[in-house]
Amino acid sequence: MATLLQVLPALERGGVERGTVDLARFLKRAGHRPLVASAGGGLVAELEADGITHLALPLASKNPLTIWQNAARLGELMRRHRVELVHARSRAPAWSARIACRRAGTPFVTTVHAVYGGYDYRLKRRYNAVMASGDRVIAISDYVAEHVCEVYGIGPEVLRTIYRGVEVGEFDPGSVSPERIAKLQAQFQVPPGRQVVLLPGRITRIKGHLLVAEAVARIARDDFVVLFVGPDTPGSSYSAELHAKIQALGLAERVRLVGGTGDMAAALVLADLVLAPSIGPEAFGRVSVEAQAMGKPVIAADIGGLGETLLPATTGWLVPPGNAAALADAMDLALAMPAEARARMGEQARAWVREHFTAERMCRQTLAVYAELLGARA
């Protein structure tokens, strides 16, 4: 049994945070003693309900003085709990953890969850470089791994690619009750008899909402509705621009912003087609994977790590980023698919996710990385 500490800024709801919780639970089931340090958040209660210790530290702070103070605090916690390995998932906590680990001679692992901007600037590049300074460096996609290798010179002896995973028990169409689906239909005010096209994700420019509106305007058929499902920032300039675009194109009945949901699995069951049309590089493509886990075909932009998440013409379609005409053609093709063909694509998508993108697989591969540094203890 090994005592293994993960550090991250906070434990609010998000992909990085969910992966942290999934790994902590897996480590406990495997007989280890997982610890998580963060500034706290909504997932702390979930961790503690499973008997996993959370250590509260102000790790979200980027203040250099706080980072140094956190290094001392982490060092003390590592001694008290006899931590044998530390795994950092974000830059500010990674600096504190790196200092503490170097002082204690403790193995240090990082996971690079993004291609961080500003690496052309010396100070920013130096700040970002901590994520490439682990004894092992995990990248969440080949796209991220290539970036880390190119920018920071990390070689294959240190670098490992481990895709993020989803809980296939949670993202299983058979686990979603009709009541949950009916509740969302009412909440989203889905018109009867319409196919549903879903774009999950926060309302930000990179997610491609404007591009989708342009694509919908090119499609002649009117038997579908597009739902933008995700939190919006009231008063944001992008949100205002998006609303204006929808009105200008006469799409108010075909494209709608419906807000966020705490039940994404049910939202995906409701969908006939899921979009991931990002206009800028994504490190991975969690939406694409979750949708395929639910047996839904996906149209994704072939950019960043998104292209690694599906099998073109088998589980979905890849389109050139920023190309409204190509997106419209793919949407038209998908919406015209016979039910049998769509069901077959859905089964292939579920099999693809079960083979490559489960939380169990992610956790087992991460534990194998720990074992490289700890030997038989992991």
Score class of each variant (00 low, 15 high):
T314C: 02
P297D: 09
A265L: 06
A291V: 12
D272Q: 09
H243G: 04
D263P: 03
I219F: 00
D263L: 10
V229R: 10
L270Q: 01
T314V: 14
Q247H: 12
T261A: 01
D302G: 12
A220R: 15
E282Y: 00
L275Q: 03
G305K: 07
G316R: 04
L268T: 06
A283P: 15
R218E: 12
A283E: 01
L242T: 04
V258G: 04
L227C: 08
A220W: 08
S236E: 12
D223Y: 01
W317Y: 13
A244I: 06
A266E: 08
R256S: 06
L251W: 12
G260D: 11
A276R: 00
A291E: 09
I246V: 15
G285N: 02
G250N: 09
L306G: 03
L318H: 08
Y238R: 07
T233K: 13
A265M: 04
I303V: 13
L318Q: 13
L275V: 11
R256W: 06
V225G: 04
A252L: 08
W317V: 04
D302E: 14
A276I: 01
S288V: 15
W317C: 00
A291D: 09
L270N: 11
A300G: 13
G235D: 08
F228Y: 15
V269D: 00
R221F: 01
A248R: 15
E290F: 11
P281G: 00
E253K: 14
A248S: 15
G259E: 02
K296E: 06
L242S: 05
D272W: 00
S278G: 04
I279A: 00
T315G: 02
G250E: 05
G250A: 09
T233G: 02
P234W: 11
G285Y: 00
L273Q: 09
D232F: 01
A267G: 08
A291H: 10
